[in-house]
């Protein structure tokens, strides 16, 4: 009975995802095909003066830009279904390859930041709630509220000024040192280039989880069961370990999984500032230079990424929370 419950859940999620992606495809395509931007021109870019009308037509023909929209949509959608996302105009390479390559380097950055912001944010939230009303609580709250009003890219710029210009500890950017062959790059170099972007991403990302954890723990501390625990003589750390932790850890973990959307957005900004060659930077290039196939591919891929986070968050809830896990057996 439980088995069928979970498989039915997964099946429903798969249906939801398919519908979601299909809808994204349609909407994105409609948006792009009504856009005032001429893809041919975007493709040619700076070479505009040297390209004649004939060449332009040839390019438009090559990309299938002269076909009616519906035909173009089904052509594009059909290729998508076969796993062909088209060819990126900037990178002159298949979109799927570009995304896979860039995503791997983004993933390292995002996971580092995600884990750091999760742990730091959770600890800060717990500290604030346990010391509610103290100067420490006020400092943590002030920090979180200020950070949630701070433009991520500005925080990144400040770190850049402090750690590369004033105290030249870290390199200015690029995922790898300049002038070194790719195979000569050590993992240590990669780490050195990743620290600042990851730090930026985590100090701005922890505000949400910290404030949420603080509010949740204050709720828990005001609950009947904590009141009863206090009446039973429990206090301080024992009280937190027995009743606080188990009641706030799950919401915190699921919230963190549900924050993939902000994580991706943060990565876009941070990669731009630190010239980190990830998917975020590819997104900015695709949209500022009009690389339509790549942009469409990224929209779909990032949708999948966010969906995965939400799905994991829900699965963890079902797996850990006894009220759902054992709820069916009664």
């Amino acid at each position: 009975m439980k088995r069928t419950g979970i498989s039915r859940f997964l099946l429903r999620q798969a249906g939801k995802l398919a519908l979601l992606l299909a809808a994204s495809c349609v909407i994105t395509f409609i948006l792009v095909s009504h856009s005032p931007i001429d893809p041919t021109q975007a493709y040619i870019g700076a070479d505009l003066l040297r390209v004649g009308a004939e060449q332009r037509d040839a390019i438009a023909e090559y990309w299938g830009l002269n076909d009616p929209p519906l035909q173009r949509f089904f052509f594009w959608f059909g290729s998508l279904l076969q796993g062909d996302f088209g060819t990126s105009m900037i990178h002159r390479a298949p979109v799927s390859e570009v995304i896979a390559d860039r995503f791997l380097s983004s993933l390292v950055l995002m996971i580092t930041a995600w884990v750091m912001s999760g742990i730091l944010g959770f600890t800060a939230g717990v500290t604030a709630a346990m010391k509610r009303g103290s100067w420490l609580d006020r400092a943590i709250q002030w920090y979180c509220y200020t950070l949630s009003s701070t433009p991520t890219f500005w925080a990144g710029l400040l770190l850049l000024i402090v750690f590369t210009v004033w105290l030249p500890i870290f390199p200015v950017g690029l995922g790898t040192p300049a002038g070194v062959l790719a195979e000569d790059v050590t993992w240590l170099d990669r780490v050195r280039h990743m620290i600042l972007p990851a730090l930026t991403l985590s100090i701005t990302g922890l505000a949400n989880i910290a404030l949420h954890t603080r509010a949740k723990l204050i709720d828990v501390l005001g609950s009947d069961y904590v009141l009863f625990a206090r009446a039973k003589g429990e206090e301080g750390f024992v009280l937190f370990r027995r009743h606080g932790l188990r009641n706030i850890l799950l919401p915190a973990i699921t919230l963190q999984f549900a924050s993939f959307s902000e994580l991706f957005g943060g990565a876009v900004l941070v990669e731009q500032i630190f010239s980190y060659p990830g998917l975020g930077r590819a997104t900015v290039e695709a949209s500022t230079r009009g690389d339509v196939p790549l942009l469409l591919g990224i929209v779909l891929f990032s949708t999948l990424f966010v969906f995965t986070g939400n799905l994991l968050s829900e699965l963890i809830y079902r797996w850990i929370d006894p009220r759902i896990r054992e709820g069916q057996s009664i």
């Binding site: 609950s223 009947d224 009863f228 009446a231 039973k232 003589g233 009743h243 188990r246 009641n247 799950l250």
Partner: peptide, 23 residues
């Protein structure tokens, strides 16, 4: 009071929500 409760003074609360929902 903090030294006594749970040891020399015990309490039966009114609310059934007084049990930790996840334990």
């Amino acid at each position: 009071i903090r030294k006594l409760r749970g040891k020399r003074i015990a309490f039966v609360p009114q609310s059934v929500q007084s049990l930790d929902p996840l334990m």
